[in-house]
Design a binder for these strands. Structure first.
Lengths: 208, 208
DNA sequence: ACCTGAACACCGTTCAAGT
DNA sequence: ACCTGAACACCGTTCAAGT
């Protein structure tokens, strides 16, 4: 591609492209070198090794995500808005989620959102350890949800329709429920619903 | 090890040992063959390839987990008890979680617990789509939580103390909160607390 | 300071050949 | 039916040598 001297930035850029298009597994040092038109070993000079290259990629994307502004009137709706935005940001970068997760950088990604959440918990009347617990509960819920969602998407791609669930005794008693469980979940809806449920209970502790 | 003829069961057993002790990455076809004292290619004859070997391993462990009995008086406490037991089961098999997750078999692991959850939602007065949503919310919460926890543990092993969070404006106003957030979260406590919060709100919908 | 090819020590998988 | 060694096409990484 480029005729000029190779820079660390160019290596990162090309690696980022590769990961975005085909996932982290598609990023091989040899493939990357070929793409850049250099010897494999040049890449090692610029980024150390594969592991630290991926680290740099994650750091890059996390910075790019930036802060999150809450919207809405009540603390509850504002917290849910932060959660939804955070989910959206993570969803826009499907491969990033797995990489952050594997690297244990979850806390790092959550830091910008944490500030906003703390502020809202405070206005809702929560203090000290109780506020911290509420903030963390929301954070865990968001990341956990996105991870499960992602796994579900991958599963659909690779094994479409693995096994029909058998009808249980309680299913026969409530066919509407059985039908709802047979359908794949609508993640957007489910996320908002459980987030609202969680936040409602957490904030209720502030006023008692 | 064994002098007799090689069986599929022996291959699975040895593979299971390896994964349990050193994780899925440690499972190489060559290493496994060496451990069993056979040629690599014999293993291929018995289990197909590495991918289906891992699939078989997951299936095996999931069956081993079995059903989950709720305890407690009210539907809320019974649901929370199922959630806690499920978390415990998953936690007792650290490597399994990652494997199930990567393979998109989350739903499969959750099936036994789902029956119990449906029953409790029903006794709590939830019906149809609303009951399904509650059940799924709980399931997502459990798996998500465990995934986040696991990532956190891995992170601790590899990068102890990456970066101290700076003191924010709101942290200075509530030092107890700041201290609580600086400490690593107690997952057991946090899990139970947010599970209770979630379930409380979800079931409240049944009586309105 | 930056780039190179050759080489090392690994992988998973296939295949033709054995018994 | 079951097992084998050889070979293929990949990996990440190191190292001595170039400019």
């Amino acid at each position: 591609m480029s005729r000029t001297v190779l820079t660390r930035e160019q290596v990162l850029e090309a690696a980022d492209d590769l990961v975005r298009q085909h996932g982290p597994d598609a990023l091989t040092m040899r493939g990357l070198a070929a793409r850049l038109g250099t010897a494999v070993t040049s890449i090692y000079w610029h980024v150390g090794n594969r592991e630290s290259l991926l680290d740099a990629l994650v750091e890059r994307t996390v910075e790019e995500m930036g802060a999150i502004q809450p919207t809405g009137r009540t603390p509850a709706t504002r917290i849910v808005s932060v959660a939804r935005r955070l989910r959206g940001e993570l969803h826009a970068r499907p491969h990033l989620i797995a990489m952050v997760h594997e690297r244990g950088l979850t806390e790092r990604v959550l830091l910008p959102a944490q500030r906003a959440l703390v502020r809202e918990a405070h206005t809702a009347g929560l203090r000290g350890a109780r506020a911290a617990e509420a903030v963390r509960a929301v954070q865990f819920q968001v990341v956990g949800f996105v991870l499960v969602e992602r796994a579900r998407e991958l599963a659909q791609d690779e094994t479409p329709g693995r096994e029909r669930p058998r009808k249980s005794a309680s299913a026969r008693k409530d066919p509407a429920l059985a039908r709802a469980l047979a359908r794949p979940a609508d993640p957007e809806r489910l996320f908002t619903a459980s987030m609202r449920a969680l936040v409602k209970s957490l904030l209720a502790q502030g006023s008692t």
